[in-house]
Simulated assay, not measured.
Amino acid sequence: MTDLFAREILPASTWNAAHAVDRITLDYEGRHRRRYRYRADGGLGFVLDLAQTTLLHDGDGVKLDDGRIVLVQAAPEALVAVTASDTDALVKLAWHIGNRHLPAQLSSERILIRDDAVIVDMLRGLGARVEKIVAPFTPERGAYAHAHDDHQAPAHPFVFVAGQAHGH
C-alpha cells in the first residue's frame, strides 16, 4: 500500500471542519513537527511531510495528497495557570518564565506553562498564584514564525518562549 502524504496545512479559519474525513488528537509535542508518520483517531494513516517544522494548531486541517483533510485537535495536557495581583506583576512573571526558556501561552489574565514543580515553586516565591489545570497547550509563536510560513526565514526553526525567540 502506498503511503498517504500531507504536505499542506489549512489554518483553522480557512476550511470547514465538517468536511474532515478523520481527526488526530495530539499534545503540543505531537503538533510541533516537520516529518512524522501519524495514525488518526479513526485509523487513517499518513505521513506529515512539510518543508519546515511547523506547529499545528487546534482546528487546523492537514490536507492529504488525495485531497482529503484530517482535523487537528489539541489534546489536553497537565499545565499550570499562572496569575498575579495585577498586570505589572503578570508581566514580570512572564519575563521570569521567558528568562528560563519555557514555552508559554499568554493572555492578559494568565500565563499557561507545562507543569514543572521547580518552576511552580519559583513562581510562588515571586508572588504568583498558580493553579494546576488540564487543557490544550498552544504556546506563543515567535516573530520569525510568520516568516517561516512564507518561506522567507532562515533555514532553522524558531520558537517563542515568553519574550524571546530562540533557534532550535
Rank of each mutant, 00 (worst) to 15 (best):
A84N: 06
S85W: 04
S85F: 02
S85L: 10
D86A: 14
T87W: 14
D88N: 12
D88P: 02
D88R: 05
A89Q: 08
A89L: 14
A89W: 10
L90T: 06
L90W: 08
L90I: 04
L90Y: 03
V91R: 04
V91L: 10
V91I: 05
V91F: 08
V91E: 05
K92M: 06
K92C: 07
A94C: 09
A94I: 07
W95N: 06
H96C: 02
H96P: 00
H96N: 08
I97C: 04
G98Y: 05
G98C: 01
N99D: 03
R100A: 00
R100F: 01
R100D: 01
H101T: 09
H101G: 01
H101R: 09
L102S: 01
P103G: 12
P103L: 13
P103Q: 06
A104T: 09
Q105T: 00
Q105K: 10
Q105F: 08
L106P: 10
S107E: 15
S107A: 02
S107W: 02
S108N: 12
S108H: 13
S108C: 11
E109Y: 13
E109G: 12
R110V: 07
R110M: 08
I111S: 03
I111D: 00
I111H: 15
I111Y: 09
L112Y: 04
L112F: 13
L112P: 14
I113A: 03
R114S: 10
R114A: 06
R114F: 07
D115W: 04
D115Y: 15
D115M: 14
D115L: 15
D116R: 14
D116H: 08
D116G: 01
D116Y: 07
A117K: 10
V118W: 01
V118G: 01
V118S: 02
V118F: 04
V118M: 00
I119E: 01
V120W: 09
V120R: 07
D121H: 06
D121Q: 07
M122P: 04
M122F: 08
L123M: 08
L123C: 08
L123A: 07
R124Q: 08
R124Y: 01
R124K: 14
G125M: 11
L126P: 07
G127E: 00
G127A: 01
G127T: 12
G127C: 06
A128F: 15
A128C: 05
A128H: 06
R129C: 01
V130M: 05
V130G: 12
E131I: 10
E131P: 08
K132D: 11
K132H: 11
I133A: 03
V134M: 09
A135G: 02
A135H: 06
P136T: 00
P136Y: 04
T138D: 15
T138C: 06
P139V: 00
E140K: 08
E140V: 10
E140C: 14
R141D: 11
R141M: 07
R141W: 05
R141T: 12
G142I: 00
G142H: 08
G142R: 00
G142S: 07
A143W: 15
A143I: 14
A143H: 11
Y144L: 09
Y144F: 07
Y144V: 15
A145C: 07
A145D: 10
A145E: 12
A145S: 03
H146K: 13
H146P: 05
H146D: 12
A147N: 08
A147G: 04
H148F: 13
